[in-house]
Design a protein around this nucleic acid. Sequence first.
RNA 1: GCACUCAUAGCUCAGCUGGAUAGAGCAUCGGUUUGCGGUACCGAAGGUCUCAGGUUCGAAUCCUGAUGGGUGUACCA
Length: 584
Amino acid sequence: MFSNSYLGTLTHHPIRKNHMKLKSQLNQSIKEAFLKAGIEDIPMSVSEATKPDFGDYQFNGAMALSKKLGKNPREIATQIINHLDFTGIIEKAEIAGPGFINLWLNPLWLATQCQIALEDERLGVSIREEPIKVVVDYSGPNMAKQMHVGHLRSTIIGDTLANLLTFLGDEVIRQNHIGDWGTQFGMLIAYLEMKNEDASVDLSDLEQFYKDAKTYFDADASFANKAREYVVKIQSGDAHCLALWQKFIDISLGHCEEVYEKLGVNLTRNDVRAESFYNDALPQIVSALNSKGMLQESDGAQCVFLEENEIPVIVQKGDGGYLYATTDLAALKYRSETLGVKRISYVVDARQAEHFNQVFQVAKKANFVTEDVHLEHIGFGMMMDKSGRPFKTRDGGVVKLIDLLDEAVMKAKETINNIDEYSQEEIENLAKTIGIGAVKYADLSMNRESNYIFNWDNMLSFDGNTSLYLQYAYARIQSIFRKYNASIEGEIVITDALEHRLAVMLLRFEDVLQRTANMATPHQLTTYLYELATLFMRFYEQNPILKEDVDAQIRVSRLQLANLTAKTIKQGLSILGIQVVDKL
RNA sequence: GCACUCAUAGCUCAGCUGGAUAGAGCAUCGGUUUGCGGUACCGAAGGUCUCAGGUUCGAAUCCUGAUGGGUGUACCA
């Protein structure tokens, strides 16, 4: 289909702004054709062709218009094609079936765009023209316990979303809403003081510490009383107790940071906005709701009843205490009023959908957030074991996240080929890159809304949609460059159908990122990267690069395509928080 | 009881605003000229998209109902 005739013409098209975003450019071309044909209302957008025979993109809007215009859809399609501009991005258009318009992109145009992407640090992905300020609220571990697998998804999905929005140019504020407040802390602080009044107590196993404290609490009445006193003291601002509490939080947070470090997640202490941060604002939340006439007392508690929902949002307990809904409202108010953000994304498991739905409604109704702030709950399903049951240890306990990650690194070592060629340090780094990448990728490549089955064998495989496959593809390309051993300079020339498809795929990157960001669905990015890598493998299998009989110009062009592929994989994985290596 | 959510190949999953013969990977079977990294690539087989209605030129996708699983259901977070 794509003959070598392209080789003769090396004249590239002039550089355009917004060179990527294939879809919007094609939509623009379609729109112009419509206007020339005298049709104003364009019903839909182009989409990727469902198979190579149908070209690169297709436009299906003619069918939808046929009733409205009282015309045969093929007639409408013909009209559009007659006014289509074939001097730029589009090379050819055909009508098929009931009125599909299949579009083939101009290979010269594709080559130029790839060239531009290659010379750009951002790979041609434009920075948002109107960036917004956004809070991504994720991870949110409880300070009374060690991080467990239940925190994994929030932490890495949230981190990916934050990375992605940052890359696209938004001003992202990461917020780690840690659980550092509540009645159990009285017990923990009392126990901490009992164990060691002055300094470093070993909290390496928070789970155990919690259990021990609980044992005392249940068995020793005087200790239990003391624990209750501590709750009151902390809440009333007692300096000594607060100091102990602070110490406990510091140590506990330190454990979390170990996990973040191991996981390669971009969360620091600066991102922490703990529950306790909002303590002072809680009474104001209740009084504000009251003054707006939204409060209602029910069984002694202060509640907001929302129309469609019989279950109220309780903002103050009968005993005067506040609840997490109150804290969330205070956080929303702070983020809207003080931080001035326009989008707030909560990456929290799906079970809390109802809670966020209610809290968002209350926040809007009470004007804690302005009308134009987009509030969203990025929910996700649970992690299941191979047999489809919730992920637990053999004795039914929670799996500590740090243990899971250590196991991943250990298992990753077994996948390293020719392990003798590496130093101990190299092996550790490699295993970490592979193992952590596998855990993250397996999670991110699933549609986040459904539960997902955690399976070591699948995620650490070289076959299929895994991080290892992508890392391998990347390393293999680097190996080509090592062998070539010279700087890659020269123009891209599209000479056959596979090169053509690869170029289109590469240029789709920005569209994919945009969509992934808008819908907060990382799996769309992983699917894209996997498709890109498999397509490259096919291309590479069929189109030799370094073999002796390859024409020098074609060799350079293919090296350039390989280079852009590698860069795109690297950038995509980097957004997912996954590293690449030059050698596997 | 009520609400939310899910149901696609033996298994794990894609399928974007409704569009052409529903796609990958694993597993199974078969293949690849002295192979730029074969941890690769190509092919075969595998489906009444849980079921029944409805809307539409057109439905895995939207609506209604049924069945089956998961989750939530006021003073924990």
